[in-house]
Computed example of a mutant assay.
Amino acid sequence: MLRLWVWPFLIFASALVSGVATAKPAPARIVAVGDLHGDYDAWEAIARGAGVVDAKGKWAGGSTVLVQMGDVVDRGPDSLKIIHQLMRLQREARSKGGQVIALVGNHEAMNMTRDLRYVHPGEYLAFTDRDSEARRSRIYEANKTAIEAAYRSRDPKMTAEAIRAAWIKETPLGMLEHQSAWGPEGEVGKWVIGNPAVAKVGDSLFVHGGISAKYATMSLGDINLAVATALKRRDETPASIINDGAGPLWYRGLVTREPGDEATVAPVPAGAAAPLTIDQEIDLVLTHFGVKRIVVGHTPSLQGIISNPGGTLWRTDSAISRAYNGKLTYLEIVGDQATSHEVTRPAGKPWG
C-alpha cells in the first residue's frame, strides 16, 4: 500500500493524556475481558454474562471495575461498534461508582501507526457516509500528480487509468475516514491515547502483552506516558515502546519463550549475565509494582482463560473473536479469589 500518498492530508497533533489508571481503594469486584477483535456479538454476550451491562447495553455493573485488555480492533467487522460502547460505558460507570478501563493493545497501536494488515473490510465500511465516494475522488484528484509518480516509480508503463484503478482498489471506501478517525486528533485516536497501556487495580496488574525486565523498573505513569507519546507521534520505529517486542503491547515472555520470536525473548537485566526465567521475571514484576497477580491478553489460548500454577499470571485471551472461534470468557476477581467464567457463543456464521 502506498502510505505516502494516501495519508498526506491527514496530519494531526494531540494534547497528551496519560492516566495511571489505578483504582483506589481496591474495588470489591473486577471483571477482565480479553481480546475481542471486532466481534461485537461475542463482546455483548460476555458483558451481559458478567452482569456489567443490561439488555439495552447500558452499564449495570454498579461499583465493578471492568478492564478490557486491548485488541478490540482488527480481524472482525464491528470494532467501531465496540469502541463506541466502551466510550459510553466509561461515562456511565463513572456516574454509578464503577470504572471501565480500556487498555491499549498492539492492534490499537498498529491502527494508529497505519499498519492496516489485519483490518477487516467491515471496519472500513463502518466509517463510510454518503460523501465517501466523492471524498475519495476529490482526494485522488488533489494528489494525482504525486500518486502517478509513485506508481510509475514501480512501473513506468502504467497508464493514468490503470494507476487510478489501482489506487481506488488499494483505498476502499471508508479507509480514508478510518485513518482520519484513528489519527491523534481523531475521535478514536484521542480515545486510545487517553487510555492506559498498564493499569494497577487493587493487587492486580493489567497489561495487554506483558511487562519484561526491560520495563519492570519504570513506574506505571512513565510507561503510560511513553506509550501515549509514541501513539501521539504515530511512531513507527522498531525501538519505540509501542513496537518493541519486549514492550508492554507485544511481550509474550511471561507466557512462553520461543527461539526466533522476538516478542518472547527475555531481555537481560542490567548487571545480569543471562535473562531471567519466566518465574523470575514474573516475580520481578510482582515485586516492583506491589501486586499479587499479573493479568494479560495478547497470547491466545483455545482452552479458555488459564493461569500459571501459582496463580500469579492469568491469560485472558481465549480467542474470543469468531476470527478464531475460541471460548467466550471473562475473569472475575473478588478479594483474593480469581475465577474464570465462560458464556455461550451467540449463533452466527464465521466471517469471510
Rank of each mutant, 00 (worst) to 15 (best):
L2F: 11
L2Q: 11
L4T: 13
W5L: 10
P8C: 05
P8E: 05
L10C: 07
I11C: 01
F12C: 14
A13D: 12
A15Y: 08
A15H: 12
G19M: 13
A21Q: 09
T22V: 05
P25I: 00
V31G: 01
G34F: 03
L36Y: 12
G38T: 07
G38P: 14
D39S: 12
D39K: 11
Y40E: 08
D41Y: 04
A42P: 08
A42M: 05
W43G: 01
W43Q: 00
A47M: 10
G49N: 01
A50N: 01
V52P: 00
K56P: 01
W59P: 00
A60P: 06
T64Q: 06
L66F: 10
Q68Y: 03
M69Q: 03
V72P: 09
R75V: 02
I83L: 15
R88L: 11
R94T: 14
R94E: 15
K96M: 06
G98L: 06
G98C: 07
L103S: 00
N106W: 13
A109C: 11
A109K: 14
A109P: 11
M112N: 13
M112S: 08
D115K: 14
L116V: 03
L116Y: 11
R117V: 14
V119M: 04
G122H: 00
F127V: 07
T128E: 13
R135F: 14
R135S: 14
R136E: 09
N143R: 13
N143F: 09
N143C: 05
A146E: 10
E148V: 13
A149P: 04
A149V: 04
S153I: 00
D155K: 14
K157V: 06
M158E: 12
T159E: 11
A160R: 15
R164C: 08
A165E: 15
A166N: 08
E170I: 03
Q179R: 13
S180L: 10
W182V: 10
G186T: 10
G189T: 09
W191K: 05
V192S: 02
I193E: 03
P196Y: 08
A197S: 15
V201Y: 09
D203L: 05
S204N: 12
L205V: 02
G209M: 06
S212N: 02
A213S: 15
V227P: 03
T229I: 11
T229K: 15
L231C: 11
K232Q: 13
S240E: 09
S240Y: 10
S240M: 12
S240T: 14
S240K: 13
G247F: 07
L249H: 12
W250Y: 12
Y251I: 02
G253V: 05
T256G: 01
E258L: 12
P259L: 06
D261Y: 08
E262G: 03
E262A: 12
V265P: 07
A266P: 11
P267N: 11
G271V: 09
A273D: 15
A274E: 14
A274C: 04
T277Y: 09
I282P: 01
L284N: 07
L286N: 06
T287Y: 03
G290D: 00
G290K: 02
V291H: 07
T299F: 13
T299C: 07
T299V: 13
P300G: 00
S301R: 15
G304P: 04
N308Q: 07
P309T: 06
D317R: 06
S321W: 13
A323E: 11
K327D: 05
T329K: 02
Y330E: 01
I333F: 01
T339H: 00
H341F: 12
H341Q: 02
R345M: 04
A347Y: 07
K349F: 10
W351Q: 04
